[in-house]
Design a protein around this nucleic acid. Structure first.
Length: 790
DNA sequence: GGCTCTTTCGTTTTT
DNA sequence: CGAAAGAGCC
């Protein structure tokens, strides 16, 4: 059982630490069990806020502390660079040893490392570059054009998806069985695409993960402990990749000596739409004959009412491994529910509540999050926040390395490394413009296709003025390459920006200022990348273990090039390494935005984060759950998990809101409150406005499946109008009792405000009103002249 | 080659 | 409604 090459560990040495060892202190029994698991495969079902990252990092530290493993035996896989960095940072606080031999990173990052080291075995160019989604799309478009295929009939997006799913199933073009003519054409395109990638020395994301036979033999025994975070988000290919690393599969079972620790939460699986397969968890249990199955259900994040809501909601899902979160923090405040006539009112209310939270409850703005189902919802909220002068930060959108100007710069850099990269070539051959128009490019592509070579090499085949210009561009690249030889990466980029004309182009561009700043930021990013990676000074080659050393000898035989140092990618130049970095790490979408800002993001983007106060807005049928998910049960259950994720982001306060009408796709739509609201336990909830502030639409007012009928629409309109008018009328009659909490009022001196509370009767009646400009004030209703606005 | 008008489309997204 | 991409015009 004990593998022979386990270092210096006799079976009699029980791998333990005293229970009061600092490393283990403060762990609850389940966490402790997970951290100190013996060898063998394990599944940790880790609920939201249950200390998952702590368990993972402590587990690694424990393995090292007890001498069961050295850093080189451990691989830890995450989904995002952010998660990998966080784990690395936390581990560094737990372990005094050098961790350089440990493999910790994203699936793609680790695959990249493997493929760099064994590019020959994998049949890849030595300095292959990675295509991002944009590049891939562009490459496919180019391919279609080159072969006179109709882009209408074969949408590049769909083709990309087709190629990826083939790769996911381990199918090369020759393996795909085409039963109809259309399929035959798609397969032919798949082959052409592969040829094109091969010729250009590029690799797409799916290719990065492909089952490369060469790796199978060499790597399955190197890693003795394999830890996987967010296991519920793995797709088929990633799961296969894990199986490959874990060891031989015999009779459907994994028999290697590697121990796989998978940590995940099926209730937080929200990425089915991009290929994630929760079923991998069940498959893992079966195929790996998992002996250890631990649930972490103690939640250290949220107050009781919030957790009760989360638990009750997710109970409505049928396909679950089963889990119930609990806390000893007490029930806390009720979950507040707000309904408003329109999306605009929702935003207005939200802004006032945010102001109250920061001014009265002393919450920090960055501890307040606004979560929505779709990005389009942020617009209204942003504009209200902006008008109120509240700083906010929107997550999502364009990322740094995706920006056009940055991609242009990178394209030049890639061409310095590899002129055969047609994607990059096409991107910048005429940017900034050099008089190389569509016609010139078409004839270049024609020549390249006939000669079966790259665009770069076909330039000399094009005749006339066009050919001269193309060769001029090639010469420009050559001159740049020569000029930057021996220069630092930062200087290289600076030179390229200047020599390519990019800098001059953006200097004259009217909106070029921001772009110029991004290009400067690119230089800075490159410089700090070089420093962090420690090229030159810190790149000590690591002793590879026997297995890896064997691989090295095998693949690098008869080659003058030394093996790639797996830890630093040593044979890559700083520029090459930076280009890989740019491809694998999209970068933050917003450079250091103000810290003191309300956080706006989609529910998806909020996964893994937590906040003191959370607003989940737009809880309406058709929006959340989204229309497109309503048709099938799986879709609806994923929406529910999404809601579950959203709820469990909140520590102390949770607000749920829905609007009766909302501007969507340029027209007003009327929506029922989300069914998810009905699935929450009433005793945890507090309805802020009740039904008094405005009319409530009944479910019967709506037509199922098709939104709202015309008749019901006008009915809804009249209800809403009445609702807005009614309270104002009663207030005008001078009755203070008509004031209700949550109402919008207007005061001649203080302006707009919202009623926070009403106290007393008759002449003694007072109201606590929060004014937008003057803050909260107590006013005697007999004296103050207030008008109810809504 | 670049600008403007028109059309189309509209969940969620990391690498 | 508003962004983005494509078509068409100068």
């Amino acid at each position: 059982m004990t593998p022979s090459h386990l270092p210096n560990l006799s079976p009699s040495t029980a791998p333990t630490l005293p229970a009061n060892h600092p490393l283990l202190r403060g762990l609850n029994p389940e966490q402790l069990a997970a951290v100190t698991l013996p060898q063998g495969h394990a599944l940790i079902l880790a609920g939201a806020g249950s200390g998952k990252t702590r368990v993972l990092t402590t587990r690694i530290a424990w393995l090292l502390h007890t001498g069961q493993a050295s850093a080189g035996h451990i691989m830890a896989v995450t989904f995002t660079n952010k998660a990998a960095k966080e784990m690395q940072a936390r581990l560094a606080t737990l372990v005094p040893f050098q961790l350089r031999g440990m493999w910790m990173g994203t699936f793609h990052g680790l695959c990249n490392r493997l493929l760099r080291a064994h590019h020959q075995a994998a049949g890849l160019a030595a300095t292959f570059q990675i295509l991002d989604v944009q590049d891939q799309q562009a490459a496919i478009k180019r391919l279609l054009k080159q072969h006179n295929m109709d882009a209408e009939r074969f949408p590049p997006k769909q083709l990309a998806w087709f190629f990826a799913s083939c790769k996911e199933d381990g199918l090369r073009p020759k393996d795909v069985v085409a039963t109809n003519p259309e399929m035959q054409q798609k397969v032919a395109l798949y082959q052409l695409y592969e040829d094109q990638c091969q010729r250009e020395g590029v690799v797409d994301f799916a290719e990065l993960l492909r089952d490369h036979h060469a790796l199978r033999q060499h790597y399955q025994q190197r890693f003795r402990y394999l830890l996987v975070d967010e296991f519920q988000d793995t797709n088929r290919l990633q799961y296969q990749w894990l199986k490959l690393l874990a060891g031989e599969s015999e009779g459907g079972h994994i028999i290697g000596s590697t121990s796989v620790l998978a940590v995940g939460d099926d209730d937080q699986s929200i990425y089915a739409f991009r290929g994630a397969r929760v079923g991998n968890m069940q498959d893992f249990l079966r195929e790996f004959k998992v002996q250890h199955h631990i649930k972490l259900e103690r939640n250290y994040r949220s107050h009781g009412h919030i957790l009760d809501c989360a638990n009750a909601l997710i109970e409505h899902n049928s396909q679950r491994l089963g889990k119930n979160l609990s806390t000893d923090q007490g029930a806390g405040e009720p979950v507040r529910i707000q309904q408003t006539p329109t999306d605009l009112d929702e935003a207005r209310w939200l802004v006032e509540e945010v102001q109250a939270l920061t001014r009265q409850d002393g919450l920090q703005r960055q501890e307040i999050a606004v979560l929505y189902r779709s990005n389009a919802q942020s617009r209204v909220i942003e504009s209200r926040l902006f008008n109120a002068g509240i700083p906010y930060r929107v997550y999502g959108g364009m990322r740094f390395f995706e920006r056009a100007e940055v991609k242009h710069a990178l394209a030049y850099l890639r061409l310095l490394e590899n002129p055969q990269d047609d994607t990059s070539y096409t991107r910048v051959v005429n940017f900034p413009t050099r008089g190389i128009g569509t016609r010139s490019l078409e004839s270049l592509q024609q020549q390249a296709r006939q000669a079966g070579c790259s665009l770069h090499n076909a330039a000399s085949l094009v005749s006339g003025a066009a050919g001269a210009k193309l060769q001029g561009f090639n010469a420009l690249l050559d001159v740049m390459r020569e000029a930057v030889a021996g220069q630092s990466l930062g200087d290289t980029i600076a030179h390229v920006l200047q020599a390519s004309g990019l800098e001059a182009h953006y200097q004259t561009d009217k909106e070029g200022q921001e772009r110029l700043e991004n290009l400067q930021e690119l230089i800075r990013a490159a410089e700090s990348f070089v420093q962090q990676e420690g090229f030159g000074k810190d790149a000590i080659a690591l002793p590879l273990d026997e297995t890896a050393a064997a691989v090295t000898t095998a693949t690098a035989a008869n080659s003058a090039t030394p093996a790639v140092d797996l830890e630093t990618g040593e044979t890559l130049s700083p520029l090459q390494a930076f280009l890989v970095h740019a491809a694998l790490e999209a970068g933050d979408n917003q450079a250091q935005a103000g810290q003191d800002a309300v956080q706006l993001m989609t529910v998806h983007a909020s996964k893994g984060l937590e906040f003191d106060a959370v607003f989940i807005v737009g809880l309406e049928e058709g929006l959340f759950p989204h229309d497109n998910a309503l048709s099938d049960k799986d879709g609806l259950e994923e929406e529910r998990r999404l809601m579950y994720v959203a709820i469990t982001r909140a520590r102390q306060r949770l607000y749920l809101s829905h609007a009766h009408s909302r501007m969507l796709h340029g027209r007003t739509s009327f929506n029922l409150p989300s069914r998810f609201l009905d699935e929450l336990p009433p005793h945890c909830l507090h309805h802020l406005l009740g039904t008094a502030g405005f009319a409530k639409l009944e479910r019967s007012d709506y037509v199922r499946g098709g939104g709202i009928s015309a008749g019901a629409q006008s009915f809804a309109h009249s209800l809403l109008e009445k609702a807005v008018a009614a309270p104002a009328a009663s207030a005008a009659a001078g009755s203070g009792a008509a004031l209700r909490k949550g109402q919008q009022v207007f005061h001649a001196k203080f302006g707009e405000g919202q009623v926070l509370a009403v106290e007393g009767q008759g002449a003694d009646a007072r109201a606590h009103i929060h004014f937008v400009r003057h803050g909260a004030k107590w006013l005697a209703l007999a004296i103050a002249k207030l008008t109810v606005v809504a």
